[in-house]
Design a protein around this nucleic acid. Structure first.
Lengths: 267, 267
DNA sequence: CGGCTAATTTATCTTTTGATAAAACAACAT
DNA sequence: ATGTTGTTTTATCAAAAGATAAATTAGCCG
């Protein structure tokens, strides 16, 4: 517990949201002894302001731990950053604290509150809304870093995954189901609570899309170029397939579904 | 390297294919020298025949690495086995060799060749076949050990996942698609090769089911008690939803689908 | 230029961890 | 019993890896 007059702490600055491409490291070179402009991997971009250094560390840490897992070693992370390993400890009191920051970075900052609006805009066909939402969700989440850190964190037993998915369930799944009910002229969730089976159906759509990311970034398989096209196809299949399942589950007669369809507002 | 007159080697015995439910571990307790029935955690089950010891190690290693990941430490594994850590090295030349054995154990020995027969038994409705296959596949694969070791191995960059999934694609997906084509009176894969879009549709069913295991064993979420019921629902939705998508993809007119349906053998 | 402040590095500690060699000892055959 | 065989343990090594303290030096200010 020595005196450490430094930034440190886990909840430091980093509100600046600007461009991440800070690749333009201002070069220095010692005042004398030019040491020839050899293309040495030692450009010495030393001495940055603390908040910028911190941003660099966090950015690289996300990429690094996504690749190597949370057992990745601080020495290698430091090497990638072009700094020495002890310097990490000036900005984060422990590796665990750095990892906490990495979680924060990945889980937060990538949720788009607008998604919820898209889903409940009844001026558009539900299929369109779901397609737009999941296309954008895929764009945001089906990335190397997001998918792998999410999986590493789940395997490690963090409850972060559980908490994140609770949000997904309440904000997304529940809305999709509400809108599906509305389309099919079924009672609103406020009247008849959402059943486990309904959640399962939405889970299945979600899984199909998320699993594309797993295939690519965890299994290293090739996936279709046009993910949006797949989302469209899956959403179509989902919308078309749900009524058949719902019919079985609720044991509703085909006639009742026809009546329901008749009550549906024609778009 | 030192003379080692021991079993060792990675491809040792254990070809016996018997039951996987080896839960009935041959009990411990030394034959004599009771050493007082104190509830001490030191039952001294020493000196087993090499192949039995090896089986015990592999069995525990699977459980251990599934829980802790491949960075789990040999000392803790040994502690769980009630043996000392160097003993592991009498049976496996390195940790890596033990891990290879663990992969083998999980990936092999759990594939049921009969699955392929189920899927192509045209005396039954396709929906039934898919339900039976995926119910059994889920029973075999949606386990703590399988799911987690598969994911750990993928994250580690092993190509085992890719190779396994190639088998799944060729043996399962291709069959499902062939049967779907047949049901819808479409050309066989031998005539018209399977498109990426068709594979995607089957991937989606597969993902929906596999993801149930991820939810439970990686995220720690609760899942429905009756997984088979979910498989039934998902398969129904799949079968019902596919034609709509296929229609879009192949841009086939509704009439052509009606004609196709007419040619379909009525079950 | 001279000096102060603090970002960064060098040197080092301790614990962990995969791995090895040699001692110990249980089980079996003679 | 007694010796032999080979399983298991004890003792130990060396490298890896998280963490800390002290030395160094870049950059700013007068």
């Amino acid at each position: 517990m020595g005196s450490r007059p430094a930034p440190c702490g886990t909840g430091a600055a980093f509100s600046g949201r600007e461009s991440v491409g800070v690749t333009a490291a201002s070069v220095r070179k010692a005042p004398k002894a030019k040491a020839k402009p050899k293309a040495k991997p030692k450009p010495k971009p030393k001495r940055l302001p603390p908040d910028e250094r911190e941003r660099l560390i966090v950015r690289e840490a996300v990429a690094f731990f996504a690749e190597r897992g949370f057992e990745g070693q601080t020495r290698e992370l430091a090497r990638r950053l072009g700094i020495t390993q002890p310097l990490l400890y000036r900005y984060f009191p422990s590796k665990e604290a750095l990892l906490d920051r990495v979680y924060q970075e990945v889980y937060l900052n990538r949720w788009n509150p607008h998604w919820e609006d898209i889903l409940e805009d009844r001026s558009r066909p539900l299929e369109d809304r779901i397609v737009e939402f999941y296309s954008d969700y895929a764009r945001a989440v089906l990335t190397y870093e997001w998918i792998r850190i999410f999986m590493f964190s789940g395997l490690r037993g963090m409850d972060l995954n559980g908490r994140y998915l609770t949000v997904v369930r309440d904000r997304i799944f529940a809305r999709v189901i509400r809108e599906l009910r509305f389309e099919n002229a079924l009672p609103a969730p406020s009247e008849v609570p959402i059943s486990e089976a309904e959640f399962e159906l939405v889970w299945s759509l979600h899984a199909s899309i998320f699993y594309i990311g797993i295939r690519k970034w965890i299994y290293g398989l090739t996936i279709p170029d046009d993910v949006t096209a797949v989302v469209v196809a899956l959403t179509t299949a989902f919308i078309e397939g749900v009524p058949a399942v719902v019919a079985r589950l609720t044991d509703a007669s085909p006639e009742s579904r026809v009546r329901a369809a008749a009550r549906r507002p024609t778009p």
